Amino acid sequence: MLVLITYDVNTETPQGQKRLHQVAKTCKNFGQRVQKSVFECLLDPLQLAKVRSKLSSIICVEEDSLRIYHLGNNWQSHIEHMGINKPYDPKGPLIR
């Protein structure tokens, strides 16, 4: 299934800046960055549980925001893209 992971990490402190780096690194391990704080990830249920667990251990729920949108298996009809950067095809080749 395709999930969209978005986050907003409070970077006013050094700890927040560290969390931001850790969240981005974790998301990169599971998907493709499509905007600065937005990742598209093609995951099975076990991978989704793993990324959710990792991210929830990093963020500070009092200062940060994390959203996971489930686009499902029929995701192609749910994404519309305009502007720069070619749309990401999670089923396409990894090397561009």
Rank of each mutant, 00 (worst) to 15 (best):
S37G: 12
K25D: 11
D8K: 04
G83A: 03
F30M: 07
L42F: 09
I58A: 14
I5S: 00
I58S: 14
G31Q: 00
D8W: 03
M1V: 08
P90Y: 13
L42P: 00
I58C: 14
L48G: 03
H21Q: 15
Y69T: 03
S56E: 10
W75S: 00
N85W: 07
R19Q: 02
Y69K: 01
I95K: 15
S77I: 05
A24N: 01
Q35M: 10
C60Q: 14
S53E: 06
T11C: 15
E80P: 00
P45D: 14
Q32P: 01
T6L: 15
D89P: 02
K86A: 13
H21M: 06
G92N: 02
L48P: 00
K36F: 15
V3N: 00
N74I: 11
Y7F: 15
A24T: 01
L66W: 14
M1F: 09
L2Q: 05
Y88A: 10
V3C: 05
T11I: 13
V61G: 08
P14D: 09
D89K: 09
N10D: 15
E12M: 10
H81V: 07
T13F: 15
I84L: 13
Q15Y: 03
A49R: 02
D89T: 08
I5A: 02
L4K: 09
N73S: 12
G16M: 02
F30S: 02
N73C: 06
Y88D: 06
Y69F: 14
T13Q: 11
L42K: 08
E80F: 15
G31D: 00
Y7M: 12
E62L: 13
V23D: 01
N10W: 08
I58F: 12
I79Y: 05
T6G: 05
Y69N: 04
L2A: 04
I59F: 02
K86I: 12
